[in-house]
């Protein structure tokens, strides 16, 4: 990659005043560093990944509102987690976390465990139980 080829595409990095450092060759063939504001193929990949997550969040939200699943599933998706990650944060086995996704089991959870979940998702226990005011986007 030549120095002038270092991609300077628009990306979501810009809004955060964030530039990457890249290595490229100058006109004499020497390696130098150059800043990059972003690169389209990467931005698209990232955007798609975000969109994918948002779709998962929206589906989870629907499932919670229709009473199929407990709000934990929604919060898990909202925080870009999967069951493994959530289980390691709360320090329980995965099968227990999965069980907590059942509304009937969720209703009977102890205050202590609910508080633990609430702390992980940085919400109050009240918000944890009721997601109606919550949006579809991660």
């Amino acid at each position: 990659m030549k120095r002038e080829e270092v991609p300077q595409d628009k990306s979501n990095l810009e809004s955060a005043h964030f530039r990457e450092l890249c290595y490229a060759v100058d006109e004499n063939g020497e390696y130098v560093t150059e800043h990059s504001t972003g690169w389209n193929p990467k931005t698209i990949a990232l955007d798609n990944a975000i969109q994918e997550i948002n779709e998962r969040v929206a589906t989870a939200r629907q499932r919670v509102l229709s009473g199929e699943r407990s709000p934990l599933e929604y919060y898990m998706e909202l925080h870009k987690m999967d069951v493994g990650i959530l289980a390691s944060y709360i320090g329980l086995w995965q099968w227990r976390v999965k069980r907590h996704f059942k509304p009937s089991v969720f209703k009977r959870l102890s205050a202590k465990i609910l508080q633990k979940y609430a702390d992980i998702f940085e919400v109050t226990v009240e918000e944890l139980k009721n997601i109606e005011g919550k949006g579809n986007c991660a």
Partner: peptide, 21 residues
Amino acid sequence: LGQVVRMQEEIGTGGGGFRYI
């Protein structure tokens, strides 16, 4: 496929998956 590219494109690789460094 997006993930293949995103892994290659960790921050700062300039598109070459660390080959330029």
